[in-house]
Design a protein around this nucleic acid. Structure first.
Length: 275
DNA sequence: ACTATTTCCTGGATGC
DNA sequence: TGCATCCAGGAAATAG
């Protein structure tokens, strides 16, 4: 399930391989169910554009596109963005056109270099859309200043775990990294955000950044078949201290890791290390 | 204005 | 072996 580190890894890979390439044509499956844009709108926006850059915003991949030619409605050089959210099982594959089209392929982009960029998503939680000035809304966890981070949670009665998952507050943190960050900060996931001291929040701030940076350095966590656009697996799953470790011994105190459900999501924590 | 719950979707795991 | 059931989870939609 791609969260910030996985999406960052994918976006970097796509940027290094696709920047400068040109989109010749686009095929969209019957039901990519884009956020706001229709299939026709997406296809029309992508067609005949050069990929100027690929970057990550929150859990979104943003393709920065520039039109190479004049169009009826706009001048040459006009900008547009293709926004891809991978959901849980989405992947972006750069491959040769001869490669067999995998089941659940919902989009195929033909590039001037002769390669194809394919969007594959078995569970269909992924979303495609186009925009002009995309805004991920929440703060980027690796850019936000400490004081801003602290005010994000001010007065919130919701469990801190839920607040960390709220993309309108911080964007990019998902279930795995929320659990791992809370473990490192020594905070139980059910603790109400409002009950956390400044000290707690400082630790959490450091933990979130530390966990995300380490995960990016290792290419993300490969669970549920996650691979980057090269087909390469990440290795941060080997560093998980609580996520997916229910019943196993805590790596620092040997207590059994617990799993509870918060807002319908599995939440893993050490009952001894986290208060 | 918040917060909590439900819904979407399919493959893989589990159980009888 | 085969079929049914459950579970995973991001975020929009809905309910409270």
């Amino acid at each position: 399930m791609p969260e910030l580190p996985e999406v960052e890894t994918i976006a970097r890979g796509l940027a290094s391989r696709l920047t400068g390439d040109f989109i010749e044509s686009v095929w969209l499956g019957s039901k990519p169910e884009p956020l706001k844009s229709s299939a026709a709108e997406i296809a029309a926006t992508l067609q005949s554009r050069r990929i100027a850059d690929v970057r990550r915003m929150g859990k979104h991949i943003v393709f920065e596109l520039v039109s190479a030619r004049e169009r009826p409605s706009e001048r040459a050089g006009a900008k547009a963005q293709w926004i891809v959210h991978l959901g849980m099982t989405g992947s972006m594959l750069v491959c040769k056109p001869e490669l067999e089209i995998a089941k659940h392929t919902h989009a195929v982009v033909k590039l001037a270099s002769g390669r194809e960029l394919r969007f594959v998503d078995p569970r269909r939680f992924g979303r495609l859309s186009v925009a002009r000035d995309f805004d991920a809304v929440g703060c980027e966890p690796l850019d936000v200043k400490l004081d801003r981070f602290i005010t994000l949670f001010h007065g919130r009665k919701t469990p801190i775990k839920s607040a960390l998952l709220n993309q309108k507050l911080l964007c990019g943190v998902g279930n795995i990294y929320a659990d791992e960050s809370l473990f490192r900060a020594g905070i139980r996931p059910r603790r109400r955000a409002v009950s956390l001291t400044r000290e707690n929040l400082c630790r959490l701030y450091k933990s979130v950044q530390e966990v995300l940076k380490e995960a990016i350095a290792l290419g993300g966590s490969s669970v549920s078949h996650y691979v980057d656009s090269d087909g390469q697996e990440g290795s941060f799953q080997l560093e998980h201290r609580v996520y997916g470790r229910e019943g196993k011994r805590c790596l620092s105190c040997k207590a059994a890791i617990k799993r509870i459900v918060i807002a319908g999501r599995s939440s893993h924590y050490c009952p001894k290390c986290q208060k």
